[in-house]
Structure formats: structure tokens, C-alpha cells
Amino acid sequence: MTSSQPPRLSLFVEPAEWVEEVLAAAAVIDGFGVDVPVTLAWAAEVGRTLPRDASLTDRWQLLAGAAFLDVGAARILEPHLDALAILDEAGVEPDAAATWGVFAAEGAGTRLTAERDATGWTLRGTKPWCSLAGSLSHALVTAWVDDERRRLFAVPLRHDTVTAHAGPWHARGLSQVVSAPVDFSGTPAEPVGDDGWYLRRPGFAHGGVGVAAAWWGGAMGLLPALRAAASTERADQIAHQHLGDADAALWAARAVLAETADVFSAGPRADAGLLANRARTVTARAATTALETADLALGPLPLVADETHARRVADLHLYLRQHHGARDAARMGRDLTASEQPW
């Protein structure tokens, strides 16, 4: 637990009362973010009580606030809420007691296929990068239905045909959020949407920016230490510059996240993928700036003597690797060259 008080982060709009209540409850949970079963229980309760009409702004403020408290907690909460949003978009009512992951990554040398017979669909093969598969009850998983098409399926992870690997997972950041392969051996699966729906749906872009909101909240958690360092009697102009640099970068990301929430809330857009990639890129760069600035401003001491700070830095470094840097920028460039009205 990093604080006895919930964060007061906002995307230029005061968080809804339910957001503040959820974060206030989280702030007093022993082991929040570190104890996976405890944090998953909290995430499941958040999912059960989340207003169906919750705005994107408030959903992202919730993720940012959770990450401000503990980056690992946001990393646990985000896929659960994303899965619930996907199921809602598909018109599927989830089990209220379930805890969810979303496993959509592909990896060299592994392939998960979906087969259909008279009794229904089953999954066979291996899926890489399945976060917390050994702790969750269910997951939404993409699988190949033939050589060209993928489809999304809901699967029970506690079925005897599912084997969740314990590793390899030598991570120093997010060490509790094990992301390892899972083997499926004829696992019963329920299709969610038709072929290709997972990537086509409007909510795909929304979910991607939700992750960025968590990056932003995690990076905002570095500012109190920078402010404290700039407030000491020994602080010089460089200490003030470090604080100003990090604040400016994160303020710009805040503005981008807020505008993206407003634009997405106005309705579906053909350029939603481009807008999401822009928001993720701006936020990832801002969070990276804050991390680099904190390292320069604070030196090695908090990285070795302050468990909370060291864990935040390590967790955020790894979480940011969900952004693919130059490859994501190149994808934006391709989208821009293909667009008739890129700006």
C-alpha cells in the first residue's frame, strides 16, 4: 500500500463519486497491488459495481488512480475491466463471480487453433503472454479458425484441459503479474463475436488508451518525490527543472487523454486506431520522460532504500513495454499516408 489517502487525479473533469469511493476503498487494502488474490477480489468487486453508463473519462480516471496507488494494481484491474467491456459490447452477460483476462498476443513457434464439431468449439495449442492465467477464473482468448482468420472466445481457465505455465518469468517489475504461456488441450470455448470482430469493434481502440491512462497514473506517482526533492533547503535550479520537466510532460499527456476520451465518446470513428496510437505514443513518451527525470533528480538512493519507489519504477518500466516505440510510430506513419484527411 502506497498511501492512506486516495489520489485526486483528474482528466480536467472531477472524478465521479463512484470512482472516488473505489479508490478510497483500495487505499486501505493491505497488500493492494502486491497480493494477487486480494487485488483480484477488489478488481472483481469493481467490475460488479461499475455503472453500466460509466463514461470513458471516468473509466480512465479509475485506471489512472489505481496506478497512482500501485502500478501492479492497475495492471491487474485493466484486463478485467477490458474483458467486461468487450463482453458488454458483444451483448454477453458474464458470470458475476468471474475474474477475467484478455489473451490476444501471438508468438513465434506457438499457435492456438479453434475447432468446431457437433458439440461446439474447442481450443488446442499454446497461447503466449497470458497474464495471471494461474490466478484467473476465465479469459477472452483469440484463436485461429483457419490460416487467415482469428476469432475471440471465452474460456474457463480452471478446466482440466488448461495448463498455465509458471514461467519463464524472471521480471523484477510486476513480478507478481506472471505472464507466461498457457496450453489448451481441447478446452471448451464460447465464441464472442464473429471472425475478426475483436479487432474491428470500436472498443478495441478505447481499451488501448485505457492502458495508457494507467501508464499516466503510474508516472504521476513519481511527482510527489520530485516535488519533495525540489522543496529541500539543498534544492537548486536543476532540482526545480527536473520537477518542471516531468510535470510538463505529464500535463501534455493528461490533455491528450482527456481530448481522446471526449472524441471517442462522441461516437465511432474510422480513424479510431490512429487516434488511439497517438494517445498511447504521447503518454508513453511522457511517462518515460518522468522515469528518466526521476532517476536523474533522485539518484540511486530511493531505488535501493525506498521499496515503494523502487517497485513503482520497475513496474512502470515493464508496463510501458506494451508500447512498441518505433514500430507504433511507424504504424501511425502508415495510417497517415493512407488517410485522405490525416489531420
Rank of each mutant, 00 (worst) to 15 (best):
S10C: 04
V13D: 15
E21A: 15
E21Y: 11
I29F: 08
D30Y: 09
F32W: 15
P37T: 12
T39R: 02
L40G: 01
A41I: 14
A43M: 01
A44T: 08
T49S: 13
T49N: 07
T49M: 06
L50G: 01
D53Y: 00
A54P: 14
L56I: 04
W60T: 04
Q61T: 14
L62T: 03
G65K: 13
G65A: 11
V71M: 08
I76M: 14
A83C: 05
L84V: 01
L87G: 06
D88M: 06
E89C: 07
E93T: 10
A98W: 04
A108N: 09
T110E: 11
R111W: 02
L112N: 06
W121M: 12
T122Y: 02
P128F: 10
P128A: 12
W129R: 09
C130E: 05
L132G: 10
L132W: 03
H138P: 02
L140V: 10
L140H: 13
V141N: 14
V141S: 12
W144P: 00
D146H: 10
R150E: 13
L152S: 07
A154N: 01
V155E: 01
V155D: 06
P156K: 12
D160E: 15
T161K: 04
V162E: 03
A166G: 15
G167Q: 04
A171R: 15
V178Q: 12
V178I: 14
V182I: 06
F184R: 03
F184L: 10
E190M: 14
D194H: 11
D195F: 08
D195V: 13
D195P: 09
L199Q: 09
R200W: 01
G207E: 10
A212Q: 13
A214T: 05
G218D: 13
L222K: 09
L222Q: 10
A225F: 05
A225K: 11
L226H: 09
A228H: 11
E233Q: 10
R234G: 07
D236K: 04
A248H: 14
L250E: 09
A253E: 03
T260V: 03
T260R: 04
D262S: 09
P268D: 12
P268K: 08
A272M: 05
L275G: 11
N277L: 14
R278Y: 04
R280K: 11
R280W: 07
V282Q: 08
A286E: 05
A286Y: 11
L291W: 07
E292A: 13
E292Q: 15
T293D: 07
P300M: 00
A310G: 13
R312F: 14
L316R: 01
L316G: 03
L318S: 10
Q322H: 15
Q322S: 09
Q322V: 00
G325I: 06
A329P: 03
G333Y: 00
R334M: 13
A338V: 14
